[in-house]
């Protein structure tokens, strides 16, 4: 079966739900491209997801390792956080077809750790990243893009694997 046309499908769906405005998805003719400057086995590879990944912690004895605005913006998570402590809070997924029980099916942190152990990638930064969905294209380009770039530069990240939920 052909892939889902989400732009058409969501437009029709939200109109049927009583919304009167349709969302204008970002469109560009030109696409920027940066080639890899060195082999992946020498690159520090970052991970960025929109799956609203959070960390289970005990508020009695621990601090939340994530510092963030309330469901807005860009944040970082210590990269050595045990996978079983990670979970997603997103509401934007197909709950009828799948689950969010396995973090690695939407935020492939163990798969990245394996690639590191295998020497397929050179290194990982001390943090992995998350960004909340923002329907303002202007804000993504003026605030969140620069915020991710700042994390990348501060952590010495060479390339980024990006996973929208």
């Amino acid at each position: 079966m052909e892939h889902v046309r989400y732009i058409d499908r969501t437009r029709d769906y939200y109109l049927s739900q009583g919304y009167d405005k349709t969302y204008e998805w970002a469109y560009f003719d030109d696409v920027p491209f940066t080639p890899l400057a060195k082999p992946l086995s020498e690159c520090k590879v970052g991970l960025l997801g929109t799956s609203e990944v959070a960390v289970h912690f005990d508020p009695e004895t621990e601090e939340n390792p994530i510092v963030e605005e309330y469901f807005r913006g860009v944040y970082s998570i210590p990269a050595d956080t045990p996978t079983q402590k990670l979970y997603s809070r997103t509401l934007d997924f197909d709950r009828n077809a799948t689950t969010l029980d396995d973090v690695n099916s939407f935020y492939p942190i163990d798969r990245m750790r394996e690639a590191l152990a295998d020497g397929r990638i050179g290194s990982m930064p001390d943090s992995v990243y998350g960004a909340y969905n923002n329907y303002s294209k202007r804000k993504v380009l003026e605030e969140e893009g620069p915020a991710v770039l700042e994390y990348c530069r501060a952590d010495g990240v060479d390339v980024v694997v990006i996973v929208p939920i």
Partner: peptide
């Protein structure tokens, strides 16, 4: 998320 990818690419960071 595509917009962030584009922003990084435009500033010299390759993405997938």
């Amino acid at each position: 998320m595509s917009l962030i990818s584009r922003y990084l690419e435009a500033h010299g960071v390759p993405t997938v």
